[in-house]
Design a binder for these strands. Structure first.
Lengths: 223, 223
DNA sequence: CTTTACTGAGAACATCGTTCGCGGTAAAGT
DNA sequence: ACTTTACCGCGAACGATGTTCTCAGTAAAG
């Protein structure tokens, strides 16, 4: 079973010593490493060390490094804490879900990178089930609803990285932005960067930007 | 200058032998490797080999591996081949740009992964300048327009991976999907997966799905 | 013709994901 | 009771990676 998704693993030990850790333990360890030092620090060895285990031991529980990512994403998906049943007001539900996702992405910045590629674990499935049901009153088909869910997640991910944490772009990036802003050959882009750079003293806090972006996502760019 | 974006590099050799390659050569080599074997195959050594050079030699031209990605993305951004001036019909322009991006992502699947993280090279800047100008008639502010551009790119990326190339998800993933579809605990999700799986015999080809998704992106989910 | 500044690139280093194989342990088979 | 079986943790090793060091070669500047 080398190409099996981790959720299909059947784990029922009959003989030998009982495993020293659970998948939840491993997920927690990986999450704490990711929160503290970023995704790129989430290595097999680092997570194993966090668990107080040897590196090779992890392969008793997972079969690929991607399984680690899957565990992290689905474990954190439990933090959405959505109601079990939609309210019936689909727009309010969409706003609710969006805000929860934003909060979680802010708490765990690596989600923006890992979530799109992750397989669908139980918590993720619960979240999608809720979202699909919430979108039922729109009259959209299932494929369209899935698409919208992906669209909204992708938007929140890029929004989090672009607006919420622009300082993460590094010194060289900032210098490059400045040179673009000073280039008269592309006036629209120059203006846009100037508008992006100043941390919105007047018209728009990040939260306001988020709400308005969300409104545009629902009602369209012209609405 | 270790943290400098590659586009800020000043390259004007005064002494010694002239460089054996150009940044364009390197970009082309990296692109051909990525097209043929996927992003994960784009290694320093592989690109150097494609160039007929030694691995360490690449560091005479780039200073980080990410520079390679930046080169790839911006080089391919030239393929958009947009008009120099928007038509004045912003919606038509948006549709035009979206289709061009989709075509390029289809030709170079790694773009979906690399483009979001890449720095803005000259061709990317040209593309954004056009897009920003095209969106001017909407009355949106510059930040909102940037956001919409990011949103559309993100949507196309996920759409390309989800709808256009679902076979890339691997055997284990497909098996997992099937088990989700057979789980009565989450009926909405089950239906959605069934709808996703069958390659749209009746109502919707990928192209139609794209056009309708694009329409919803512009006019909102309810429109 | 010496100096200088750049070139390409082999060798080496640290780190990574992953596999092999070992000694140990506890339940199943007899 | 004891052998067998199937799992456990994990040190050691392998191959591949990004990056740096170093050095011989080369061509323009002084």
């Amino acid at each position: 079973m080398q190409d099996t998704v981790i959720w299909d693993r059947v784990r029922e030990a009959r003989k030998g010593p009982r495993p020293a850790h659970t998948l939840d333990d491993i997920a927690r360890a990986a999450i704490s490493v990711g929160d503290a030092n970023g995704v790129e620090a989430v290595s097999i060895r680092a997570v194993a060390a966090q668990l107080g285990a040897g590196a090779a031991s992890l392969y008793r529980y997972i079969s690929r490094k991607d399984d680690l990512y899957d565990l992290m994403v689905d474990s954190v998906a439990a933090e959405y804490e959505l109601p079990s049943v939609p309210s019936g007001e689909w727009e309010a539900d969409v706003v609710l879900v969006a805000r929860r996702i934003r909060d979680v992405y802010r708490r765990h910045p690596w989600m923006a990178e890992l979530a799109p590629h992750a397989s669908w674990g139980p918590n993720t499935q619960d979240y999608m089930e809720f979202f699909l049901a919430a979108l039922e009153p729109t009259g959209l088909g299932h494929v369209e609803r899935i698409e919208f869910i992906g669209l909204m997640s992708a938007w929140i991910a890029t929004f989090t990285q672009l607006v919420q944490q622009p300082a993460a772009t590094g010194a060289g990036r900032l210098r490059h932005f400045a040179s673009i802003a000073a280039d008269p050959a592309r006036p629209q882009l120059a203006q846009a960067i100037v508008a992006l750079m100043r941390a919105d003293p007047s018209s728009s806090s990040p939260d306001q930007l988020f709400e308005r972006g969300l409104h545009r996502l629902i009602h369209g760019i012209a609405g």
